[in-house]
Structure formats: structure tokens, C-alpha cells
Amino acid sequence: MASYSTNEFKSGLKFMLDGDPCSIIENEFVKPGKGQAFNRVKFRNLKTGRVNERTFKSGDSVEGADVLEIELEYSYNDSEFWHFMDPNTFEQYAADENAIAEAKDWLKEQYSYLVTLWDGAPLLVQPPNFVNLAVTETDPGVRGDTSSGGGKPATLETGAVVRVPLFIEVGEVLKVDTRTATYVERAKD
């Protein structure tokens, strides 16, 4: 893997820091007074998802991280791994529990997920912002009640539980915002 000098730092650059792959969010060249220049870097640790800062001496180098983001289709879960497939090459990828943590509640067969690969293995699976999922369990609907007030819990086909309006019935397909885990509307076919 190539190495990158601080003068090549820019947002989106993937590099290794303390053994973890990271992505630069912001890079600032700083030259204090008459002193030695340095780079103040804000980055995301792609393994933990955490944002952090690090100061580098200008001219220092870091090792690049072999990190790639691709769209993969979710296939199935074999209780240990969650399997995804590249719809173009049909290549299979197995993601572990850590990698799918963020997407676990929203995994549905044949849906596309943004997968970050590190050295060819899934590091992080991100769900799309919106998914359509069927209701598998909820209290019986109250006909005629279309107001947004009140609401009740509904279990979706992936196991996720969201609050829905009282009129929603078992079997209906809902559009859900995965970022906030909230009901948006009845899915339009």
C-alpha cells in the first residue's frame, strides 16, 4: 500500500493509524509564529466509527489503508456471519457482528447496503436512509383513526420495533427512516 505525506492529506483519504483504518474528515496546515509547521487532522476511525483529532509534523508520512466502499446486496445470515453479494460480479462477502451492528435492525434480503471493505473484508455495513419493511406484529388497527396523535409499537420483519399510527395493520409495508428508527409513511407500491 502506498504511503502518503502530509502534503497529500485531504478529506476522504484512507490511512492507517495505530493499526486501525481511518478516513480524513478535515486537514489544516498550521505554521505557528516562526516555528515548525504541522498538520491538524480530524479523522474518523472506520473500525469504531469515532471521530478524533491528531497532529502530524508537516512532511511526516502515513501508510495508506486498503479501504473501499461498495454497494452490496444482503443475502442471508448463517447465525455467525451475514452474507452479502456484489450484484455485478456475484462475489460473496461475509460480515461479522461488529460490521453489521449499525445495520442489523434493517437487513432485508436483496436490499443494497453501503459496505466498507478493508483488505477485502467487510468492516462496516451502512443501511440506506430509508427501507420498506412489513409489519409482523402490532395491536389491531383502529379503523377511521388517521390522526397522527397517539401511536403504538409495531414489530417489523427484520425484528426492529418502531412507533406507528394506530391505524396500521399487520402485513402492511411501511417506509422507515433508518437514521432515526422512525415510521415515515405507508409504502407506496
Binding site: P32, G33, G35, R40, E53, R54, T55
Partner: peptide, 23 residues
Amino acid sequence: SIKGLPDDWQSDRDGWLEMLMSE
């Protein structure tokens, strides 16, 4: 006091002063 400054940062007296001034 400076977030992100690694523990093994090498500098001299003026370098530390400049770092504190700037950061």
C-alpha cells in the same frame, strides 16, 4: 491541553511554546 497531540511528539522549548500559543 492539546487534543490530538501524540505523547511521543518531539520538540524543543520554543517549539512547545509555539504549540501552546497556536493551539
